[in-house]
Simulated scan of single mutants.
Amino acid sequence: MRFTVLTEPDGRRSARRAGAVVAVLSGLALALTTTTAHAAPGDPDVIAHRGSSGMAPENTAAAIDLAVRQHADFVEIDVQQTKDGKLVNFHDCTMERTTNIEDLYPGRPRYRVSDFTWKELQRLDAGTWFHKKYAGEPLITLDDVIHRIDRTRTGLLAEISPCSHYTDIATDLADHLTTKPAYLNRALTRHQLAVQSFQPDDAHAFHTRLPAIPIGILDADRPTDTELQQLSTWADQINPQHTVTDQTLVDRIHQLGMNINVWTVDEPGAIRTMTNLGVDGIITDYPQTLTQP
């Protein structure tokens, strides 16, 4: 995947902003900029990929709660939107792999999150595929995730879904977060909130709406230096696959004033390698590998 880097704001997406929330966020923006760049070397943030997804069904309450108990610094989730506008935590562009949706709703032309209402999706079993002890584990909303981590030591790294049928999900996510000023204030003050995307245009749209929230760019490939320089004018994080990450890339990202979180790092040897490179965060299915002695 190659970046399409934006250098100018998208005027169509920079419309309304909730005044009271923006005042709070703007007041925090200056303080946050001082923590965006890499500071002293140390242990990387432990970021639980879809929750503690190596031990519980991904993106469910069970996986989120387990990550919190394992003392993850962040949970990484995936934001999609239902037919009736509810923001939910789900990764795949269709739901057959991790739910019983085909059994409950046979004959539907598509099985995307956006093809169903939240009421319909609440009936799904999102746990049995992982293990029978999680039978009946439901899907959860973004609000459910926030409720479970708010006022804990665990922050939130929310990924804007790259599924191509979404057009305004980045700004819908931003607008929804502005309805939660108390949570935003707490999370930003404690440096416990960031958003990331594989799509630079979605990341830029979100950043335009809520610039105080750190924004990251995901990539499975190694970004070029030209891309890094352009992204550094507005992005806070570059989050590549760990297999394309080396010391030169880590140092260059830090030199440009951005942080680097690598994914998805599960093998102990790879974890040691990434830690020794000085990455800022490790996204892993097994957060306990890094948090437990």
Results as ranks from 00 to 15, higher is better:
183 Y>H: 08
185 N>S: 14
185 N>W: 12
186 R>H: 14
187 A>P: 03
188 L>Q: 10
189 T>W: 06
189 T>Q: 14
189 T>H: 12
190 R>Y: 06
190 R>F: 04
190 R>D: 11
190 R>K: 15
192 Q>N: 05
193 L>M: 07
193 L>C: 08
193 L>G: 03
194 A>N: 02
195 V>P: 00
195 V>F: 04
195 V>Q: 00
195 V>H: 05
195 V>I: 13
196 Q>V: 13
196 Q>L: 09
198 F>N: 03
198 F>H: 03
198 F>M: 03
199 Q>R: 15
199 Q>F: 09
199 Q>Y: 09
200 P>E: 11
201 D>G: 00
201 D>I: 13
201 D>W: 14
201 D>R: 15
202 D>A: 15
202 D>L: 14
203 A>I: 09
203 A>E: 07
204 H>V: 08
206 F>I: 00
206 F>L: 02
206 F>Q: 00
206 F>R: 01
207 H>P: 00
207 H>W: 06
207 H>R: 13
208 T>V: 02
210 L>N: 04
210 L>P: 01
210 L>W: 03
211 P>H: 11
211 P>G: 07
211 P>K: 13
212 A>F: 04
212 A>S: 04
213 I>K: 13
213 I>N: 06
214 P>H: 08
214 P>Y: 05
215 I>C: 13
216 G>V: 07
216 G>I: 09
217 I>D: 02
217 I>P: 02
217 I>C: 14
217 I>M: 15
218 L>M: 10
219 D>N: 15
219 D>C: 15
221 D>S: 14
222 R>H: 12
222 R>G: 02
222 R>V: 10
223 P>C: 11
224 T>D: 01
224 T>C: 07
225 D>W: 14
227 E>T: 03
227 E>G: 01
228 L>R: 10
228 L>S: 05
228 L>E: 03
228 L>Y: 02
228 L>I: 05
229 Q>I: 11
230 Q>H: 12
230 Q>R: 15
231 L>W: 01
232 S>G: 10
232 S>L: 06
233 T>E: 05
233 T>F: 05
233 T>S: 13
234 W>L: 12
234 W>E: 01
234 W>A: 14
234 W>N: 05
235 A>Y: 00
236 D>P: 00
237 Q>D: 07
237 Q>L: 15
237 Q>W: 15
237 Q>A: 08
237 Q>M: 12
237 Q>I: 15
238 I>F: 00
239 N>G: 07
239 N>A: 08
239 N>W: 02
241 Q>Y: 07
241 Q>M: 08
241 Q>T: 00
243 T>I: 12
244 V>Q: 09
244 V>M: 11
245 T>D: 05
246 D>F: 12
247 Q>L: 13
248 T>M: 03
250 V>D: 01
250 V>R: 11
251 D>W: 01
251 D>T: 12
251 D>N: 12
252 R>T: 01
253 I>T: 10
253 I>N: 10
254 H>L: 11
254 H>S: 06
255 Q>N: 13
255 Q>K: 15
255 Q>M: 04
257 G>I: 07
257 G>R: 09
259 N>P: 00
259 N>A: 15
259 N>S: 15
259 N>H: 10
260 I>Y: 04
260 I>C: 08
260 I>Q: 12
261 N>K: 11
262 V>S: 09
262 V>L: 12
263 W>Y: 14
263 W>Q: 07
